[in-house]
Nucleic acid binder design. Structure first.
Length: 649
RNA sequence: GCUGCUGUAGCUCAGAGGUAGAGCACUCCCUUGGUAAGGGAGAGGUCGAGAGUUCAAUUCUCUCCAGCAGCACCA
């Protein structure tokens, strides 16, 4: 029998027979290690304890102490244990796939009856039984035909399809958890007793298409979360609770920012407080754009279908557009229009009016463009995914040669704005050529490289999303994260040589000839609506002072201070601070509580003492400590804070 | 759009086949109180919309609308 040499993490080498399993290796080291072992890393690959090792390799035995492999195995084995539990309780359930997710796992089932919340409790109990039974996990590699026949006999059509999808040459691994069988690439634990029975929780049921395909049957997805110990699970559940408190929909109500109602699904009724945030942000963006060399324009909402046909939207985007038909009944002339879902075709119209010279490029044309898109009902989400929204949109008309410099300039522009708004964790994704595309390979090569190089030149890395670009060009996406970790695309930059072509945009070059410009579609915030939603969640409602809709409440402690309260409010307003008086007949405790809940950043309390000394007692949101300040001093201080970051001296 | 769940007062929620309840918020009165809810009284609801079953429906059934979770979508 041939020998192989295994190298351990401490550098020691030992000889073993070829085909030795990590289980045997662990056994050879110590009894206790062999018991604690859950899997191995073999040349950096996560390896099942039962898989043979055929050649010299680096090896490390994993135990529950090793977080990454431990979590993967716990979650993956729990997926199997759950599927087993479900099939034991409802034997006619068909199993499909059950992968590990960020915090746990899910398993998709095909079953006629829907799972109810009560069912989840039953499944959980059965899972605990299986864990306590310490069912051994075993594995074998089967021939394709045998596996196929096995699943056909067992009435598992989804598994048959999975067997068929396993690429030629890849092993078809069969796993058993006790008497229950599943097709799985592994690795898995030694036995179900290695699972922590108190550190997982089933989180719910939802629908999911088989292979994500709308045309395939909808399955029932049962999701769970799992950790190595009860404390981590509890920590995660606490995080979810905290996240729920930051939900922009909840804070929007509590802070009286906006509301939505059934008569206008996906469109926002902005209340005075919310609209104050919106306009403050918009004023700030307008100043930034002016500084960065943009011109601002405004274009029509309702546009004849002819333009959408020319731009290609009528053919490719119609189902997402609000179509407006005007008939002879009340208009004498019939016309078919669409609410604009984006601003680009209109911007090209402005570009096209009058001759443009190469000297005009790059031409940066911005619009706070109100757009309407008929988003699918299931996609709507608070103010983050809506049907009516305003983009901080701009199109940069430029030459091929200018793409990289313009992109770099844009990234720096965006980074400065995100920093001003308190965002420091955001990522760039570069989406490259999709399968269906137009344009030559050389031009894709050039433009993709330009975007990548621009990121590097601006000092940022990026994640590649291969094949995710638009059919006409690659794009950068700038992504922020909401309170519960969902990612939202906000900023974007897309290279588009197509639309200028379709709408016949041109400029006169140095050579006196007509040339096509390229368009860069770009946005920093994406939409004001989505961005404000994220802003609220990021700051848990405690917005930076200059954006806070209600900045200061001046609260009387006794009604004898009322006149002074009004005087303080007037001073603050004169200093550019959004201040209001609270002279209600309530105790100071009550007022402090109410305005704290309302996320007012500063409460100024005034009673006899303050009136006499011409001071105020300052209480900042989140701080228990108060301090006394002279009126003139605090007015000056808050006046500075109320100034947007770009206007401070 | 799909699967499942939900819809009762401004908000958070309880309730039951015989046309409704709590807390907070709101209005008024008492209280002028020093940093996260002082006390009392009052007002407020076509129980998401429509249809059906029933002597009787807010409660049961169906359809629609909206919301929530996930999937799909996201130029």
């Amino acid at each position: 029998m041939a020998q192989i040499s295994l190298t351990f993490p401490d550098g020691n080498k030992r000889e073993y027979e070829q085909g030795v399993t990590p289980a045997a290796v662990a056994e050879s080291i110590s009894k206790s290690l062999s018991k604690k072992a859950i899997s191995a890393m073999v040349d950096g690959q996560h390896w099942d304890l039962q898989w043979p090792i055929e050649q010299d390799a680096q090896i490390a035995i994993n135990t529950l102490q090793d977080e990454a492999p431990a979590l993967e195995l716990i979650r993956h084995d729990l997926a199997h244990v759950m599927a087993r539990a479900v099939q034991e309780i409802w034997p006619d359930t068909k199993v499909t796939i059950g992968p590990v997710t960020e915090h746990g796992w899910f398993y998709d089932f095909d079953r006629a009856e829907p799972f109810t919340p009560e069912d989840l409790g039953q499944i959980e109990a059965k899972m605990k039984d299986i864990i306590n039974a310490r069912e051994p996990v075993t594995t074998e590699i089967w021939e394709r035909d045998r596996a196929r026949a096995f699943y056909e006999e067992n009435g598992e059509p989804y598994k048959v399809e999975l067997v068929d999808r396993i690429p030629e040459g890849a092993p078809i691994r069969m796993y058993w958890h006790g008497g229950w069988q599943d097709l799985c690439r592994g690795p898995h634990l030694q036995h179900t007793g290695q699972l922590p029975a108190d550190s997982f929780k089933l989180m719910g049921v939802s629908g999911a298409y088989w292979f994500g395909d709308v045309n395939r049957p909808m399955l029932q997805r049962v999701q769970g979360v799992a950790f190595r110990n009860r404390k981590d699970l509890q920590g995660y559940l606490n995080f979810l609770e905290e996240a729920a408190k930051r939900d922009h929909r909840k804070l929007g109500r509590e802070m009286d920012l906006f509301h939505l109602q059934p008569e206008a699904p996906g469109q926002i009724f902005w209340h005075p407080n919310g609209w104050t945030i919106y306009t403050s942000l918009q004023d700030y963006m307008r100043r930034q754009q002016h500084r960065d060399g943009y011109v601002e324009v405004n274009t029509p909402q309702v546009v004849d279908r002819k333009l959408w046909e020319a731009s290609g939207h009528w053919d490719n985007y119609q189902e997402n557009m609000f179509i407006v038909e005007v008939d002879e009944e009340h208009a004498r002339e019939k016309s078919i229009n669409a609410l604009k879902p984006m601003n680009c075709p209109c911007h090209v119209q402005i570009f096209n009016s009058g001759l443009k010279s190469y000297r005009d490029l790059p031409l940066r044309m911005a619009e706070f463009g109100s757009c309407n898109r008929y988003e699918p009902s299931g996609a709507l989400h608070g103010i983050m995914r809506v049907r009516g929204f305003t983009q901080d949109d701009a199109h940069i008309f430029c030459t091929d040669d200018q793409i990289e410099a313009e992109t770099k300039k844009f990234i720096e522009f965006l980074a400065g704005i995100y920093a001003d708004l308190g965002f420091h964790n955001w990522t760039i994704k570069l989406s490259t050529r999709p399968e269906k595309r137009i344009g030559s390979e050389e031009s894709w090569d050039r433009v993709e490289a330009a975007l990548g190089d621009a990121c590097k030149a601006a000092g940022y890395g990026f994640e590649l999303q291969e094949g995710e670009g638009a059919f006409y060009g690659p794009k950068l996406e700038f992504t922020l994260t909401d309170a519960i970790g969902r990612e939202w695309q906000c900023g974007t930059l897309q290279v588009d040589p197509n639309l200028p072509d379709r709408l016949d945009a041109s400029y006169i070059g140095q050579d006196g000839e007509k040339h096509r410009p390229v368009m860069l579609h770009r946005a920093v915030l994406g939409s004001f609506e989505r961005f404000i939603g994220i802003l609220i969640e990021e700051h848990a409602g405690k917005l930076p002072f200059w954006l806070a809709p209600r900045q200061v409440v001046v609260a009387s402690i006794t009604s004898e201070a009322d006149d002074y309260v009004h005087e303080v409010v007037a001073e603050l307003k004169a200093a550019g601070v959004r201040a209001e008086a609270d002279i209600r007949n309530e105790k100071i405790n009550y007022k402090v509580r109410e305005h704290s809940v309302g996320k007012v950043p500063v409460i100024l309390a005034v009673g006899h003492r303050e009136v006499e000394e011409r001071t105020v007692t300052v209480r900042r949101l989140g701080e228990k400590q108060t301090k006394v300040a002279a009126l003139a001093e605090i007015t000056q201080e808050l006046g500075v804070e109320a100034t947007p970051p770009d206007l401070r001296g």
